[in-house]
Amino acid sequence: MLQVVGVNMSKRFTHQFRRLMSTKKVVPPTPKRLPIPGVDKVILVASGKGGVGKSTTAVNLAVALRGKDQTCKVGLLDADVYGPSLPMMMNLNDSPELNEQEMMLPLMNYGVKCMSMAFLVKQDSAIIWRGLMVMSAIQQLLRKVQWGPLDYLVVDMPPGTGDTQLSVSQNIHVDGAIIVTTPQDIALLDARKGAEMFSKVNTPVLGIVQNMSVFICPKCSHTEDIFGNNGAERLSSELGIPLLADIPINKSIRQCADLGTPIVVEHPNSTTTELYYSLAKSVKDCL
């Protein structure tokens, strides 16, 4: 009897949920997308789930976008309010100053202008905010920072498809998004959801970056597909968007990130650095 009751309640809940989702609702008007003064192109670096190397990709992409001749002006916004990683990866710990217009001045390292919520709170403090507070904070980081002049603003998005993604996509003009994933099936599943979300908010997806694609033994050059094989290539084909880069597992990438020096800066002539410069070129070509 208990089992029957449980089944009936499950069916009732499913019916109510479907009815709720199918009910027409009054949708509030979409906010008007406004450009960020002085910023030419805005690029979102996103992922469906955490732990795929999204922030590492964003940081090295931002530095690589400057070009080997360092002529491009680039900014990097850490939009992950709950888990900001930009301060450690870019070796920045100061608080931003205000100009005469009471606009925050980004901190700078490696020639990249940087801003993160972590610059505005005490170190190691947990940010426990509801959605509206997060969206308000994102607005401040976008509108109350003297970003320009910039050729490119790279936005390191939090994982998932939540409030921050919607707030950023609907309030500023975004030139394109990059989806970072590993070849693992579960990561690809979430990456697909991320691409679908950007499609629904009319944000073009420039392509996919497959991170941690393969492990190459430094001693014998044997390759091992730890997280699967060519998963992002298959996803790229299915979604009809390009595979922009294929970054292998490299201990130096992790070591440089932990030390606050992107591998593009620490090892400028390495094979991995060339992959990030190639990614930057592909992104520029897409724009």
Rank of each mutant, 00 (worst) to 15 (best):
A64S: 15
R66F: 02
G67N: 10
Q70N: 12
C72A: 12
K73M: 03
L76C: 00
L77N: 03
A79V: 00
L86H: 02
P87H: 06
M88E: 09
M88T: 12
N91E: 08
N93A: 04
D94F: 02
S95D: 05
E97M: 07
E97R: 05
E100G: 15
E102T: 02
M103T: 11
M103D: 13
M108P: 03
N109I: 10
K113H: 11
C114T: 13
M115G: 09
S116T: 05
A118R: 14
D124R: 00
S125L: 06
I127M: 15
W129M: 06
W129S: 07
G131A: 15
V134C: 06
V134Y: 11
M135I: 14
S136P: 02
I138C: 03
Q139L: 08
L142T: 01
R143M: 02
Q146A: 15
P149V: 01
L153M: 15
L153P: 04
D156V: 08
D156S: 03
P158V: 03
T164P: 06
T164D: 07
Q165Y: 13
Q165V: 07
V168N: 01
S169F: 12
S169A: 15
H173E: 14
H173C: 14
D175T: 09
I178A: 11
V180T: 13
Q184N: 06
A187H: 09
L189N: 07
D190P: 07
D190I: 13
K193H: 10
F198S: 03
F198D: 04
N202L: 00
N202V: 01
V205M: 09
G207A: 04
N211I: 03
